[in-house]
Nucleic acid binder design. Sequence first.
DNA 1: CTGAAAGCGCTTACAG
DNA 2: CTGAAAGCGCTTACAG
Lengths: 335, 335
Amino acid sequence: MAVTMRDVAQHAGVSPKTVSNVMSGYPFIRDETRQRVLASIDALGYQLNISARNLKSGRTGIIGLAVPELSLPYFAELADAVITAAEEHGLTVMIEQTGAIRERELAALARPRGHLVDGLLFSPLGLGPDDVEHLHTSTPMVLLGERIFHGPVDHVMIDNVAGTRAATEHLLELGRRRIAVIGTHPGELVGTAAIRYDAFAATLADAGVEPIEQLAMPAGPWHRATGAEAMEALIASEARFDAVLALNDTLALGALRALAKHGVRVPDDVAVAGFDDIDEAQYSTPSLTTVDPGRAQIAATAVEILVGRMNGDDTAHREIVAQYALHIRESTAGP
Amino acid sequence: MAVTMRDVAQHAGVSPKTVSNVMSGYPFIRDETRQRVLASIDALGYQLNISARNLKSGRTGIIGLAVPELSLPYFAELADAVITAAEEHGLTVMIEQTGAIRERELAALARPRGHLVDGLLFSPLGLGPDDVEHLHTSTPMVLLGERIFHGPVDHVMIDNVAGTRAATEHLLELGRRRIAVIGTHPGELVGTAAIRYDAFAATLADAGVEPIEQLAMPAGPWHRATGAEAMEALIASEARFDAVLALNDTLALGALRALAKHGVRVPDDVAVAGFDDIDEAQYSTPSLTTVDPGRAQIAATAVEILVGRMNGDDTAHREIVAQYALHIRESTAGP
DNA sequence: CTGAAAGCGCTTACAG
DNA sequence: CTGAAAGCGCTTACAG
């Protein structure tokens, strides 16, 4: 069997408790004792058994991250940022893919990995406001990014409204008035799609511009493929448009592809803007104007709040909005 | 405290052992008993404690996946595939980012997550052949993708040689003779960069074409940014070239960007091919000719072999090469 | 600063 | 098909 604390204790000539103290960084140990224990740990190749610690202490040092899918660059980059932020707190991350499916999201909430995670970062896409009751989890949880419940939970949010507004105003300033939107979810009242579309419409209204209904193109999952399909449909409809606001970058990149295929010049004929600022947006041709939602800040803040909750912080629930930034690139401004 | 097996047993009027039998799917239980237990589990909201099970049984149902970084689309898409494949075996995946740094890769091997993972899928980039000794891990392990040790381990490999050869032959068939390569790692003798470059050079040699030394462009990490920089350097060198083989897709996409910036026409002036077939390759402008390494097959096969090892399979170590496919797109063939 | 005892919630033999 | 006992490897009070 594996080396246990007992073995280390024997080897070092101390009690198991002392080894435990060394492992957990308990400060009041004579330095000589600590050195002796560390030497024994090294000599025997001892490795703490997390399950045993967890069973007794109720802690694993693991946090869960539930996202729709890692194939979506936004979530892959978010996961990277979360893992990095968690590491700084000595925490490991366990990722769960929900596919943005309501049942799977509920499952992620209901069974926190067999008591295996100390806390959960949760990026819900499939849940609706009626699911608020399910948010009363036993494990601490922080909601990420998008959909807003006004429930008893901490949120670290993208500034969807201001970010979308900035992108829309940018298109208006270029003189564009017939702006298509790609990625709407008709019928959905909450959720990113609705929030961003409403912010878009409100910005237009403020500028005295009428939104054009035929230019709102639905797209279920926000992939490149669906973005391309939506743009194909828009082009086929023969509706006139001089700009596109894609509700995220992958949609925008799919749309750019379809526009290029049909020989539509970007930004001369049609200006295109996205949302997310994934790495890819800097390298597409043309490069993509987009809203940086502050991914690194979101990850770091969320982990920090979660760690606080795990340590018993029971102050009022917080709603933090990350700082966005509009990056203007060739798809609206030209080379 | 949380509900335990004992509580469920009491509620159902059976012994804890019977509850345990139900939880683990032990078949010889009277159906009526099972129903009663399941009802109690439901009524009490019981949730098995994985740590306790692990402590006794030595199993967690978790496998580790060590990759360089999730921000690289290839690894994000691989992780997605691995998570999906693991799910089919009832396994959860814990991802570790190594940053392709040797020390971190060694750490991932040395401490298998505090006895928390039953097996490890490992995609090494930083290790060299001298590190073979470190592969003797106590937990079962399968190596993914790239660098080949002839050590005592299972491998599921990309067909780097045949894939690169196919891409190179395609460029030669187009009549290109001055083929640049982006992403070399000079001095490295093993590893993906070396394998792919050597396959490229061998293919040229077979065709009686001399490789041109000045056209081999180094790039450390295979990001879009480094691909763009390498291409900028190549253009600045004023060397003549009529094709580019990028050693992966992100490099190719960065290179495409730099070519577009300088007004070089692809594929008319320069044909470009990559490797990996990430989703993005279908949607870039121009779309990217690339080698599909068989990601889904790699993930499924690796998980399958790992599960076998976890179940005590101790037959000879296997080296499996996934089926590649060359996808010809606009970056070499035009619209 | 360090030790001896108890117990976290399961599963593994062993009976029956 | 089901039960009673032991123990996995830690940490948590409690002493000293």
